[in-house]
Deep mutational scan, measured.
Amino acid sequence: VRQEELAAARAALHDLMTGKRVATVQKDGRRVEFTATSVSDLKKYIAELEVQTGM
């Protein structure tokens, strides 16, 4: 499950970095929206997932 969450989070980051205004991911069973202003929060979430998956 964590691998899927990590892939979704990375895709969301890619979307935001390429101009999409809002990206949505499932985080702990709930839907979370990230915007360009919350990229740093999304990067932290990705880092947490990488630690949890041993990457």
Rank of each mutant, 00 (worst) to 15 (best):
A12N: 01
E33R: 08
E33G: 03
G19A: 03
S40L: 14
K43D: 03
A12C: 03
K27F: 09
R30F: 09
F34S: 01
K44Q: 13
R2L: 13
R10L: 14
R21W: 06
R30K: 15
A36V: 13
Q52D: 11
T18I: 10
L16Y: 01
T53R: 07
E48F: 05
M17T: 05
L49F: 02
D15F: 06
A23Y: 03
I46M: 02
T24A: 07
R2H: 13
V1N: 10
K43C: 09
R10D: 02
S38K: 08
G54V: 06
E5H: 06
I46A: 01
Y45N: 01
G54W: 08
E33P: 03
V1I: 14
Q26H: 07
Q52C: 07
V51Q: 13
L16D: 00
D15E: 15
Q26D: 08
A12S: 03
L6N: 01
A9P: 00
E5I: 10
K44T: 05
V1F: 14
E33T: 14
G29Y: 03
L49Y: 02
T24S: 13
V22W: 07
T37F: 05
G54Q: 09
I46G: 00
L6K: 01
T35H: 07
L13W: 05
A9G: 03
L49P: 00
V25Q: 01
A36M: 11
F34G: 01
T37I: 09
M55K: 07
Y45M: 04
A7V: 12
A36F: 11
V32S: 03
D41E: 12
A47I: 07
E4G: 08
E50F: 06
E33I: 12
D28Y: 04
D15K: 10
V25C: 10
E33W: 08
K27I: 15
A7H: 08
T35Q: 06
V25F: 04
T18R: 11
K27A: 07
M55A: 10
K43P: 01
T37R: 11
V25W: 03
V32R: 04
K27V: 15
L6H: 02
L42Y: 00
F34Q: 02
R30L: 13
S40P: 11
R2C: 11
S38Y: 04
E50D: 05
R31P: 14
Q26S: 10
H14C: 12
A8L: 08
R10A: 05
S38V: 04
S40K: 12
L16T: 00
L6P: 00
M17W: 05
I46R: 00
L42F: 01
Y45S: 01
A36E: 12
F34P: 00
T37G: 15
H14M: 11
G29F: 03
R2K: 15
D41P: 02
R2V: 13
L42K: 00
T37S: 15
A11P: 00
G29T: 03
T53H: 07
Q3K: 14
A11C: 10
K44G: 07
F34L: 03
K27S: 05
Q3P: 09
A47P: 00
V51D: 14
L42A: 01
A36S: 08
L13V: 03
G19V: 02
Q3H: 10
R10Q: 11
T35R: 05
R2W: 13
E4N: 09
L6T: 02
M17G: 04
V32A: 04
T18P: 00
A23T: 07
Q26V: 15
Q3E: 13
Y45E: 01
K44D: 13
V32M: 10
T35S: 09
K43S: 07
Q52T: 10
V22L: 07
L42E: 00
T24E: 08
T24Q: 05
L16G: 00
D28M: 02
Y45W: 15
L49W: 03
H14K: 10
E48R: 08
Y45V: 05
L13T: 00
T53G: 12
A7E: 14
T24M: 05
L6I: 07
L16H: 00
M55Y: 05
E33M: 08
F34H: 02
R10T: 08
A36W: 15
G19K: 02
A9L: 14
E50N: 05
M55W: 07
K43M: 13
D15H: 09
A8D: 10
Q26L: 15
I46W: 02
K44M: 13
G29P: 00
I46H: 00
T53Y: 06
H14A: 09
M17N: 05
Q3D: 06
Q3A: 14
A9V: 04
K43Q: 10
L13A: 02
V22H: 06
A47V: 08
Q26E: 08
A8H: 11
A36K: 13
M17L: 06
T18K: 11
R10F: 06
